[in-house]
Design a protein around this nucleic acid. Structure first.
Lengths: 348, 348
DNA sequence: TTGAAAGCGCTAACAA
DNA sequence: TTGTTAGCGCTTTCAA
């Protein structure tokens, strides 16, 4: 039994002939370009629809000539997750250049709203077809994003969103759901035991951290209200500071049974746990898969890493920008970033 | 700070000029076609390498003219996971036809080795550029796959592998690791409690089921040896039969605390659990995300669904076949199928 | 408001 | 063994 899923190949010429116009006119209609009588537009559109005509992307890309240029605005510093995204973009270079796509990195301090906004404003005046940006949610950043959009450049926010802007797409996870997932896992994995749960974040000022904390607390309050949540610590995503804070906390509370690290600094937290000799008794959940969290998972110090796939995010951002630039529909199911639960046995 | 990742665009013509040969010769070398002096081959290859030349895929695709045809050999019957894969292929139809790719379904009884082998042999004589097949691991199937490969057709196994064949690629998960993941989750989620663990599969004869059982037992024996694993039940992936078997088992053992369903029939198992009023006390883990398992997760009957993303598998199979057909490298990180752990809060 | 025509960078058939 | 050349199906001037 054989079933067809794709049909024979019509071309622009076929449509032109059937609609009784020239190639150029069909092209104009296809791209909503001006200079065609409404009447003609309708006739051509009908012909296109009637034949379910799909223009050949390869031909379009070739005829276009000009290469597409995308800019990725990424943070300075050694954040391993961001470095992984950049690494995957690097690995795509052959794929990109075979398609005449150019991806350029713009490294800037995304945590300073005025610096980020300035970098973005610069891009607004540039020749880019699209921009992916790890965006801080701040009014001046929002304004800068809207400026870029107004210039006809496609914009996707990456990892961190600015929902109030007019960006075309967000590539990243739902951080509230990620926090809820962490909460559910802590609650489930501590089992019947009762005791205290510690939570440490980089800073409550970071939107993604705040959202994760919100989701976490939501679940703890509604489903595990017998557990005692300790006040939030802020480790600024630094190992040393996180280690000190957790060491002190462990000293004060001998009955901690669960620990959630919302941001970075996981190595510091892990060190505090092992030094106190309590890494096996305390359920420890953190974010992101790096060489370090992988090692901690394998040795059992870390119970679960909640992560988003950096390779997928990198590729999804490129694909979405490309689809937007080509005015193609986006395969939204494909581009949705999942919240991965990684344990020792399903490590990729 | 701006960093380039892709370079300016050379063309075949540039390479031809620099190597002192014609377009056609460069093309021959590029595709390892015969009829070029070894000497010339080397010179051209050096020029290509020196310039890191990447031929423009769009131009190649366009010049080639002929559309590529892929066949997907999928099982008869109403297996929801397989239907989801087919559905995602359907959703890709605009994407496919814009690239002049044709995907055709060949529905056959993949569980009968002779029927499957016969279907495959038929494809060997066909005009397909590539075949994706949900393959039973059996000598005659292996032989049929090798025949197809010998005809120059690209083959990927989908969901279920035949590692001993010469298929070009496998798109699916590591089922041993999936079983291990299930074991680790059951063991962790039952907590301090001690009691019995039930396990039911479709059939031990199915390779993926056998592998999952193997992985599950491995983890239970090494890490949760205090738990008592009951003998394996075989529900033939049918709801009714699974329900009966589990009902009887629950009646016999009041101290069951965990239950792992390796294959389909999850609805039957869930019904047995709820009818016995024990769905909240027993940790229940099953496979695949469907409307039904989603509902069971949300209502708390099912604790975890271990799944592989059918949309990703469908797209990965197409992309891999396409890359193979074009002799492009495969982005292996992208095409690797992950073992997803899905709980209520990270449902996609 | 519409159409004609010259490519884009390859592939493949044919010629030399 | 190598080269020449006519397209592939679009986009984009330029002309009408």
């Amino acid at each position: 039994m054989v079933e067809e899923t794709a049909s024979a190949a019509l071309t622009l010429k076929d449509i032109a002939r059937e609609a009784g116009v020239s190639l150029a006119t069909v092209d104009r209609v296809l791209h909503n370009r001006p200079g065609v009588r409404p009447d003609t537009v309708r006739r051509v559109q009908e012909t296109i629809a009637r034949n379910a005509f799909q223009p050949h992307v390869a031909a379009a890309e070739l005829a276009r000539g000009r290469a597409r240029r995308f800019a990725f605005v990424m943070p300075t510093g050694a954040n391993p997750f961001m470095l992984q995204i950049q690494a995957y973009l690097g690995e795509m270079s052959a794929w990109l250049s075979a398609r005449r796509l150019a991806v350029e990195m713009v490294i800037t301090d995304v945590f300073d709203p005025s610096v980020l906004a300035a970098s973005l404003e610069e891009l607004a005046g540039s020749e880019y077809d699209g921009v992916a940006v790890v965006a801080l949610d701040h009014p001046s950043v929002r304004a800068a994003i809207n400026d870029i959009v107004d210039r006809g450049i496609k914009v996707v926010t990456l990892v961190s969103d600015v929902p109030s802007s007019r960006r075309h797409h967000y590539v990243g996870i739902d951080n509230i759901a990620a926090g809820r997932t962490a909460g559910a896992l802590v609650g489930r994995l501590v089992g019947q035991r009762s005791g205290k749960i510690a939570i440490i974040a980089g800073s409550q000022g970071l939107r993604d951290h705040a959202e994760r904390i919100f989701g976490f607390n939501q679940v703890m309050a509604s489903e595990f209200s017998h557990l005692d949540i300790l006040p939030l610590l802020e480790g600024r995503d630094e190992d040393d500071r996180s280690q000190q804070l957790i060491s002190r906390l462990l000293g004060k509370h001998p009955d901690i049974i669960g620990l959630y690290n919302v941001g970075a600094g996981t190595q510091g937290v892990a060190t505090a746990l092992t030094e106190a000799g309590r890494d096996k008794q305390i359920v420890f959940i953190a974010h992101d898969l790096t060489a370090m969290t992988r090692r901690l998972l394998l040795q059992g110090t870390l119970d679960v890493a909640i992560s988003q796939n950096p390779g997928h995010e990198a590729r999804a951002a490129v694909r979405v920008l490309l689809s937007l630039a080509r005015n193609e529909p986006i395969l939204s199911e494909q581009e949705k970033i999942r919240i991965d639960i990684l344990m020792r046995d399903n490590l990729p």
